[in-house]
Design a protein around this nucleic acid. Structure first.
Lengths: 196, 196, 196, 196
DNA sequence: CGCTAACCGAGACGGTACGTCCCGTCTTTAC
DNA sequence: GTAAAGACGGGACGTACCGTCTCGGTTAGCG
């Protein structure tokens, strides 16, 4: 009765559902980091989340969807390091943060798995690309600002420079045995953006 | 048993064995490229090779070893582009080749799988790192030569520059939807090594 | 709402409740006949009844209870064939009716399921036994009357004869591919009660 | 060597296979008797047989096929009681044996499950019908012999009498709470075949 | 040239994870 | 305040591969 008032017939989500979803998403990330993509088991995730296996399948059609969705959670970007005095310092901050994330955070642990999963599942790919694009954009902006302010050579192409810098960090993480450490960041920046 | 036989204790390999090995290795690469790491099945490889499943297990202890071993096959390095007139051209050749390999060759198709597998299996990791190290070394050498000859700025750190350049190409392949094309290589080189 | 109504402390059942019960019972029988015991699903019953699944569980503790209860509905006994002129004719009527029920009615379709369920669930067993006892009793009475009136041989044990006759009909339904047809009933009666 | 002689190239079955099959079939019967049709689980059967679950599915496509097949094993018929002096004694032996089988043997425990399963699965039905037909045939033959020898009334229809007798035993087992005991058999025979 | 040892295919085996289905319980929401 | 809707933990289903293991049959290469 008295159905007219309306305007927000939006189905408010069952709290049990959102709780389960949260718990499972969290557990999925932990599991992915801990066991890798190959060892990732729906059963383990459910156990880790303290949830029935069927609850997982109730909310995600399959393993990959769960992974892809769980990762969306990680989409919080780093502080753009806005408070640093000059462009070079801000670039170094962003790169240092990236280097740290790639080696120490759960996300970094997942990256190899994601790179692989992206090849199989378009939605994972889309996520990964969006994620890295956003990150790179932040870097590009700071570099562009530095170019504009004369801090970096006018010849620098901000986007390509950002790609080279990010690329170096990823490359060292994925293709070599020793990832970039924060201490190396300044030298790396020198290489691409010139010595100050 | 076979006491004095002298001087060639080296068991010459049964031709059936080497034939099987070759066929399986070949099939493994094709399968990896075609089905991806996730869809890679020993059964499919054996079928593709026209070989019994047990023959595969007779020669490799497990799936990963097979993959790792098959990839060693691909270890032929590109011509170091030695015939090019100047360092910049040689750098561009090497990078162009890398870009091409990463997008068009079977090896390129496998890289995401390898990156992931490397995290789980040290031997795959070792292979991958060795592979990329060898490649990068070629690039580093050419850059160093260019610095020595005055073609590149003296300030350039050859190894870091090589990492930035290779990294950019890998990054575009693994973390974005559009990999580097050969046409973009010169601009990329400009970014890291300065405009000529 | 409408709090003052008073005067009927006898909790008359909510009409919605009895409606639901009826609909579900009916649907349960249909479903049992249609899908068999194996395919019998609470979900299907609820759907068929146009009712929520939880409503079913509100009124019956579980699947078996629902089945057992629904079957009680079928407990209307056949007309005892009282208007027939002689005992033999009445016996033939009762057996003919049994043969028909076992092959054509929903109840007959359920009997195999019930026989099995009875083994697992005592309440189903009790129902089934009560049901067949009642039916057999009718037959026994008629036979006893026939014996008393001299229509059947004095040596006939009414109860055992009723068991043999009913048994034959059930046996043909459950253990062979061709159930008893009404046309065969007279010959069957001859076999057990003697030719007239 | 000397492969030409041939004429029986019949593939002799792998001993592992026949062993597994035997073990599983046996376990399936035990399980069916113990847990009933509803509680019958492939996992339990496999465990009981000391075999992997996948081994069961390797040899039978599904649960029902396994049950149906396992039952074929039981096809050994009872001794036809040929050594008894007269027809009546032989009839009583056969019926007594049936009563015993239905209450005490694993097969008897399975009958309710089978009756139900037969409704769903034609192959189970076929088995059940064949089984009971064979048994009934033995009884029919003995009765016919008794009629021929004048031991039973000439009016007796052997087949119908066998059906009534078997039916009574089954009926008491399936539709009442007290199955026929051996002690009751003579009276039952009297009822259908006349007092001696 | 024939024997013997190795290699081969075929495929059974015990496992483990998948994704589906349904059970019976419980909670949330709407009428 | 009852009913619907449906989430939940549990557990069996049948499928797909895994890596291990026996089988006979074939083939290479030594004697």
């Amino acid at each position: 009765m008295c159905p007219r008032d309306g305007e927000v017939p939006v189905r408010t989500e069952d709290p049990r559902v959102s709780l389960s979803r949260r718990k499972v998403r969290r557990a999925a990330l932990d599991e992915l980091a801990a066991a890798g993509y190959g060892g990732f088991t729906v059963e383990s995730v459910a156990a880790r989340a303290g949830v029935g296996r069927s609850t997982v399948y109730r909310h995600w059609p399959d393993k990959l969807s769960l992974i892809a969705d769980a990762l969306e959670t990680l989409n919080e970007q780093p502080a753009p390091g806005g408070d640093a005095p000059d462009a070079r310092a801000r670039v170094e901050m962003l790169l240092g943060h990236l280097a740290e994330v790639l080696t120490a955070s759960p996300f970094g642990t997942c990256v190899p798995a994601l790179v692989h999963a992206a090849e199989q599942d378009p939605s994972v790919g889309e996520f990964l690309h969006r994620y890295s694009a956003r990150r790179r954009q932040g870097l590009t902006d700071v570099i562009a600002a530095g170019v504009a302010s004369g801090e970096f050579p006018a010849a620098v192409d901000a986007d390509r420079a950002a790609t080279a810098l990010s690329g170096a960090v990823f490359y060292r993480r994925l293709m070599t045995a020793d990832p970039v450490t924060p201490a190396e960041v300044p030298a790396l920046v020198d290489t691409v953006l010139g010595r100050p």
